[in-house]
Simulated assay, not measured.
Amino acid sequence: MNEVLYTLTIPNLITLFRLILVPLVIWSLMAGHWGMALAGFIIAGMSDAVDGALARLWHQQSAVGAYLDPIADKLLLSSTFIVLGIVGALPVWLVVIVVFRDIGILGGVVLAREMEAPITIRPIFLSKLNTAVQIVLAAAVLAQGAGVIAMPGALTVLMLLCAFLTVSSAAAYALLWFRHMHEAA
């Protein structure tokens, strides 16, 4: 019973709310409601900051939250990138790079576990920077689609920076994975 109460913390409920926002953002984009998609994306982003701050402030970090939070983040960001690619707002090559990196990291974790050399992936600085640029890029593309801003030149620079950081962080994680697997062998 204690475990159930412990997982139903305010920070975890905020994270669940962010998970619920993902289909709303995706539906809004697919229906052409860019303003609603932007609002949902921004609310989800703010909820990410709030749930983490509250969990630390109230000492309510939990194993459930440790898993749910990055899942909610990746679902929001990856699905937003995929749909932005589908509607032509982002180039498909960029979407492929972003999604392939995330699948590669997850695949590396699963493979290491299957090879009886479990690995824990902790975010490295390059990955945090990459995620920040991906968030800014997605928000900027949504804002442009909603007619809030118009900055095609800056979006091109952001896309190139996003591609560079995504590939660089994927390479850094691959090196960490190979080093871990070598040491485990």
Rank of each mutant, 00 (worst) to 15 (best):
M1F: 14
M1I: 12
V4G: 00
L8S: 01
I10K: 00
I14Y: 01
T15R: 02
I20P: 01
V25I: 15
W27N: 10
W27V: 15
S28W: 11
G32F: 04
H33D: 13
M36C: 12
A39P: 07
G40F: 11
I43K: 01
M46R: 02
S47G: 09
S47R: 01
V50N: 03
G52K: 03
G52R: 02
L54G: 00
R56S: 10
Q61T: 15
G65I: 04
A66T: 10
Y67T: 13
P70K: 00
A72G: 10
L76A: 02
S78N: 14
S79T: 11
G85S: 04
G85K: 01
G88M: 03
A89T: 05
V92N: 04
V92H: 06
L94G: 11
V95T: 13
R101V: 10
I103A: 14
G104R: 02
G104M: 10
I105F: 06
G107D: 03
L111V: 15
M115P: 03
M115D: 06
E116V: 13
I119D: 01
R122Q: 15
R122Y: 13
I124P: 05
F125W: 15
S127Q: 09
S127V: 10
K128M: 09
T131E: 11
A132I: 10
V136R: 06
A143G: 11
Q144S: 14
G145D: 11
A146D: 12
I149M: 08
L160H: 06
F164I: 13
S168A: 15
S168F: 12
Y173C: 02
A174R: 01
L176K: 08
W177K: 00
W177V: 11
R179M: 04
R179K: 11
R179G: 03
M181E: 02
A184H: 09
A185E: 06
A185P: 10
